[in-house]
């Protein structure tokens, strides 16, 4: 293998302390929503934390929408692509996605493996992240080109990689999460833990909890496989609406750039009922990562 900083990707990522890959196996279980929350919460975990979020779901990028950055262009500088900052002038939450490179939002990216591989390599080697405490990488469903390319190109920084697996409680999703776990084992990627998403839905009318996608499966799988169970997140319609940018009045044009009203999304996120649950998950993750890096 190449030594530490031999490749462009290795050089670019040498100032990134921790790289967290969010994966799931199955689609639509909330990888992007978890990645977004993880990035926001990690940024919020300390007043100086700098976080990057990279969306490698090339044929279905959702991160720009969730961070309310739809339609922002990417600029190029002499030192590589400048990521889009979700928190305006504070510039502590940088984002990069293929969504920023599309002319129209309905354009499809119809690429086979080699082109996806090339795009991922560019994302890893050409984006000017600067110094980051955490880089969160949102992946597409499955265990294929994108995942293999990521692992391959990040080999020089393999020691700083770890993964979070997201699942829903249904058997069908757990099955795919299992495959995802097998993948992490095959490429020796340490797993920080498992998050069970969409675990129950609280009726807004009577407060009755319905297990829309069943419940408890994630915890059971974590126990069986000896994984850390990071927590379960119920379906939170406020969060869905927020991340769907349903009422993104201010966020569209000026919101992200105005210095005074810095990070509207964070403020609104903290009002959702998921935010405190997620803060606990992030605490756990930060603790595990600190332990991991301290002996070295």
């Amino acid at each position: 293998m190449a030594s530490t900083v031999d490749t462009p990707a290795g050089r670019r990522l040498q100032h990134v302390k921790h790289i967290i890959i969010v994966c799931s196996g199955k689609g639509g279980v909330g990888k992007s929503s978890v990645s977004t929350q993880l990035a926001i919460s990690l940024r919020n975990s300390s007043p100086t934390a700098r976080v990057g979020i990279l969306d490698v779901d090339l044929t279905g990028p959702s991160i720009p929408r969730m961070l309310q950055l739809d339609g922002h262009p990417v600029h190029q500088s002499s030192d590589g692509w400048v990521p889009v900052y979700a928190d305006g002038s504070e510039a502590r939450l940088a984002c990069m996605s293929v969504g920023f490179l599309l002319k129209k939002k309905e354009d499809s990216v119809v690429w086979r493996g080699p082109k996806k591989n090339a795009m991922i390599r560019q994302f890893l080697s050409d984006v000017r992240w600067g110094e980051l405490d955490y880089l969160v990488i949102d992946t597409p469903p499955g265990t294929s080109d994108e995942h293999l390319s990521l692992i391959e190109h990040m080999a020089p920084v393999a020691g700083r990689l770890s993964a979070v697996i997201v699942t829903t409680p249904q058997a069908v999703a757990l099955l795919d999460a299992m495959k995802c776990l097998s993948f992490t084992r095959a490429v020796s990627l340490p797993v920080l833990g498992l998050i069970e998403n969409m675990s129950g839905y609280v009726c807004p009318c009577c407060g009755e909890i319905s297990n829309v996608f069943s419940t408890g499966g994630g915890q059971e799988m974590a126990r069986r496989e000896g994984l850390q169970f990071l927590g379960s997140l119920p379906v939170d319609t406020d969060l869905v609406t927020l991340l769907d940018a349903a009422d993104s009045g201010a966020a569209d044009s000026s919101g992200a750039n105005s210095g005074s009203e810095t990070f509207d999304l964070l403020r609104r996120y903290q009002r959702t009922s998921t935010a405190p649950l997620f803060a606990k998950i992030v605490e756990e993750i930060v603790r595990t990562l600190d332990q991991k890096s301290s002996p070295a």
């Binding site: 196996g25 080699p114 265990t143 294929s144 080109d145 299992m178 495959k179 776990l181 097998s182 095959a186």
Partner: peptide, 8 residues
């Protein structure tokens, strides 16, 4: 449990 890790 087996993951199919195939490229295109």
């Amino acid at each position: 449990k087996d993951a199919v890790m195939w490229r295109g």
